[in-house]
């Protein structure tokens, strides 16, 4: 842990105060991303993975707020910056891609204008230079005859093409980190792979780190260097992607891996995790997973485990301390 981390998140806690008490969407999460690294974040919907990403770029919608913890970008704290300071980081240092390309682009502006606007906001360029760069970006993301298409409006692109434009926009000012929140969920399966490949290639070429939020374990396995598994607002397990897939330590990860159909293997049947993730207002005492855990024992119902070293990974499970292997 001596190499400087690009992004460090320590004990992050995101709360939503409501009239019936405070909901904790993200509870005491710590993770880090090195330069050029791809960190996958998986979990069921509502596990807090998107919320973590949104908190990092400082776009939590009120009443949601960061209640505790800190976020550091290259050692500099960014979670408490005033709006205009944070604005300079968004897009320039940390880019973002959201789930739905159909609604991420402003329908009333040409894609070129949206690109040029973003470039001029962050980079010291003339309008003509920015426009050249915009064409180049569109070419990079694989939009044919970019020089003409730059004058098109978003509705004149297909879904996959629009997500390419969104990626171009996110990369426009060469950020060091991209937070990609379910970038392919809204797309056709055949296009999903293309977009993921594109994102992977561009980030490798530019040395951009990626925090890839998804519920698709397959995408993670193919793309990520490390993976964080989230459950009910907490990290269940985090570690190198091969370790987490091949040698999962947390019973939830075990269940998650068992639920993925493997190609080429003859599997008798897919395992499933009984029950469903607790709602944010009814998280059980102790380990949040304990009501569904096949290996639950007394301590799990009383005391909440924090992530602890388990091989090359970290897992938040009391079993890790026990010699008996999962």
């Amino acid at each position: 842990m001596t190499s400087p981390k690009l992004l460090e998140v320590k004990n992050l806690r995101v709360e939503f105060p409501t009239r019936r008490g405070t909901l904790v969407a993200v509870d005491d999460i710590s993770l880090d991303i090195s330069a050029g690294e791809v960190l996958g974040v998986v979990g069921e919907s509502g596990a807090g993975k998107s919320m973590t990403g949104t908190a990092i770029i400082g776009l939590l919608e009120p009443p949601g707020r960061i209640a505790a913890g800190e976020i550091r970008l290259e050692g500099r704290r960014i979670d408490n910056l005033p709006y205009h300071e944070m604005r300079k980081i968004r897009g320039r240092q940390i880019g973002a891609i959201f789930q739905d390309p159909l609604t991420s682009l402003n329908p009333l502006y040409r894609v070129g204008d949206q690109l040029v606007e973003t470039i001029l906001t962050h980079l010291p360029m003339s309008h003509a230079q920015a426009r050249d760069r915009a064409v180049k970006l569109l070419e990079d993301v694989g939009i044919p005859s970019a020089a003409e298409r730059i004058n098109a409006y978003p509705h004149q692109f297909s879904g996959g093409m629009r997500q390419r434009v969104v990626i171009a926009l996110a990369l426009a000012a060469e950020p060091k980190l991209i937070i990609a929140d379910e970038p392919t969920t809204a797309l056709d399966v055949s296009i999903q792979a293309q977009i993921i490949q594109l994102l992977k290639r561009l980030c490798r070429e530019n040395g951009t780190a990626v925090m890839l939020v998804t519920h698709d374990m397959g995408v993670i396995a193919e793309t990520a260097d490390r993976v964080a598994v989230m459950y009910a607002g907490r990290i269940a397990e985090i570690g190198p992607v091969q370790d987490v897939i091949k040698r999962p330590h947390h019973p939830y990860t075990v269940g998650l891996m068992g639920a993925i159909p493997a190609m080429g293997h003859k599997t008798e049947r897919l395992t499933q995790i009984d029950g469903s993730m607790p709602r944010l207002n009814a998280i059980p005492k102790g380990c949040a997973f304990n009501p569904r855990c096949p290996k639950v024992f007394d301590r799990c119902r009383v005391e909440r485990p924090d992530p602890m070293p388990a091989g090359r990974s970290q897992a938040a499970c009391w079993l890790v301390k026990e010699p008996a292997h999962v």
């Binding site: 604005r87 968004r90 897009g91 991420s104 402003n106 962050h122």
Partner: peptide, 17 residues
């Protein structure tokens, strides 16, 4: 509340823009 406004903010555009 729309996505494209959120995305515009995520790109670091100024409040005025």
């Amino acid at each position: 509340r729309t996505d494209y406004i959120k995305f515009a903010r995520a790109r670091g555009l100024s409040n005025r823009a």
